[in-house]
Nucleic acid binder design. Structure first.
Lengths: 340, 340
DNA sequence: TTGAAAGCGCTAACAT
DNA sequence: ATGTTAGCGCTTTCAA
């Protein structure tokens, strides 16, 4: 592949003139410029991205790190991210951290090595170790969880959806229907994301004076299959069936649905069900799934906007973004008996 | 950020020794090595990826270009691609070409500028212009359509699913049920992908001596919404309703389903329906959608394998891959009346 | 308006 | 086992 030196030599010019002509920065006579453009095309010239990067320190790429590449939620986020970043000339590098701290640290390391100019990171569990690594970074990072270190000196921003409120709303939705035996299938309670959502469920019960029945809280890992298994456990004791199940995300709700089908239980007639994420699939499955909308696309878009601002070193104080969830009630939680 | 020079100076060594110690290539006394590693960590050293790239010519990234980032089919492909590429240390850059030739050429240009070491490209319509651009490339490319230039000197490989056979099988499935008025909703017939699939429908009809009723072939663009509109057109003349509709992909089939619902028509009782891609959602919607399985994940995996081979310059003759589709019959095409 | 030259951070051939 | 040096391809300051 030809370089600017080849072009320069070909025309008896200097590389710097060629560089100026090609980049459009700096003086260059129109005629010279024309000749250079022509020679570039003749010699099949293409600028070398790595050389440019080395010199300018700009990679024009951003990293998007997700805990589970199989979850459609993140693809909705990608739409939002891409719609903001692509017009600004950024490319998206997709990294699957497999919900592993080691892999998250690896993604952070990629940023240290300047694979990208910035990163949007989704994690179920930000902890001292990865937060510290992020704070040490020079490159901007946007998270999708609320997180504030004790020091208050965090070097990242976040776009945050109040999932606690979302799960609480879903739980209250069942309570207001007069349902009492409300079960919950969450993510790992040991992780931030899982714990927050669980608290939404617990607080809703507490506030209405309901008790949290034993064995009514099951843990999954946000995958469809873990939802199926948790659902199966919940339904195993047919003498104590829950009247409703709140799931911490749609994928698990779908697994629970499958478990219900298998046990011959009808949703919502026998058991009411709600999910969270409001994936487009909620609208299409049968019964249509009641879900807490988190606006994946908007999260992605807002995160990308924050990142852009940080990368441009926008002086305007960058605020974290808090989004409110919204319960979308569909068939799976409208008991025909109760007719709510 | 510290460089190997900083480390070298810090220890009174030369940069090359540091480089050798860090990369593990070339001689280095164990003790020196230890000291270097320690200094690297103290100085918070991280290798600069662009410098490495410039020197070695290797980017450790591959491009995945898709015509529509909203189609879940490609996310299934990503699973397959990532599962193969990630263990080999490659990162994935996602590019949305929006089914536009210009954008496709842009993706190709990215490769010329060495943004990545190779590319997997999905396009509905390979034509002389983009194929030529690909052939001019030095970097390896794998396509997901069958394509052979007249010259026979193509510099790419492809993973190919015989969609013609797939659509034909779906059409025959309806014919074998005794259905006669079979409509088709395809992609743009002016594009390779759309035309191939249409021919599968046409040939199935021809072979069984059925005529292709007027206005029974509608065009969409593979999105859900275009399917809805095509479906609406097909169902507008209630005196001539089709008995079955073959859709060229699942997203459009889903749109058609929506159109049927809106017209108060039941699937499969009033109209049978089939899609293509066999997205996981087919299993979950109601009625469960009959679909031609294309094995997105396998396509991705095989494409990634071919690409790896080409990048390693594997001497073993690289063969193109042809995958056979498989019709998965579900509720949407099992007419309860016919009881097939 | 153009050119010369240095340098971005790394690797690797060669010399010591 | 370690050091010297050149160079990957580009940008940019400074000089002409």
């Amino acid at each position: 592949m030809a370089t600017i030196y080849d072009i320069a030599e070909h025309l008896g010019l200097s590389p710097s003139t060629v560089s100026r002509a090609l980049s459009g920065r700096g003086y260059c006579k129109e005629e010279t410029r024309r000749k250079i453009l022509q020679a570039a095309s003749e010699l099949d010239y293409a600028p070398d991205h790595s050389a440019k990067m080395l010199k300018t320190g700009v990679s024009s790429k951003i990293l998007f790190a997700v805990p589970d590449i199989c979850n459609p939620f993140y693809f909705d986020m990608i739409q939002g991210i891409n719609s903001v970043l692509e017009p600004s000339g950024y490319l998206l590098i997709l990294v699957d951290t497999k919900n592993s701290l080691t892999e998250e640290l690896r993604a952070i390391q990629l940023l240290r090595e300047k694979y990208a100019d910035g990163m949007i990171m989704v994690s179920f569990h930000f902890c001292e170790e990865n937060i510290e690594a992020i704070n040490r970074l020079n490159a901007p990072v946007v998270l999708t969880n609320k997180y504030e270190s004790a020091s208050g000196q965090d070097r990242f921003n976040y776009v945050y959806v109040d999932t606690h409120a979302g799960i609480r709303e879903a739980t209250e939705h069942f309570i207001s229907q007069g349902l009492k035996r409300i079960a919950y299938v969450g993510g790992p309670a040991s992780e931030q994301t899982g714990y927050e959502r669980y608290c939404g469920y617990r607080d809703a019960l507490l506030e209405s004076g309901l008790s949290e029945p034993e064995n009514y809280v099951q843990e999954g890992d946000f995958t469809e299959n873990s939802g199926y298994m948790a659902g199966t456990r919940l339904l195993s004791d047919s003498s104590e069936l829950p009247e409703a199940i709140v799931a911490a995300n749609d994928l698990m709700a779908m697994g629970i649905l499958r478990a219900c089908e298998q046990k011959g239980l009808s949703v919502p007639k026998d058991i009411a069900l709600s999910g969270m994420d409001n994936l487009s699939i909620c609208e299409r499955i049968s019964p249509k799934l009641t879900s807490v909308e988190l606006c994946a696309e908007e999260i992605g878009g807002r995160a990308a906007e924050l990142l852009l601002k940080q990368m441009k070193n926008d002086p305007s104080r960058i605020a974290n973004v808090r989004l409110q969830p919204r319960l979308v009630v569909r068939e799976s939680s409208r008991s025909s008996v109760l007719n709510v």
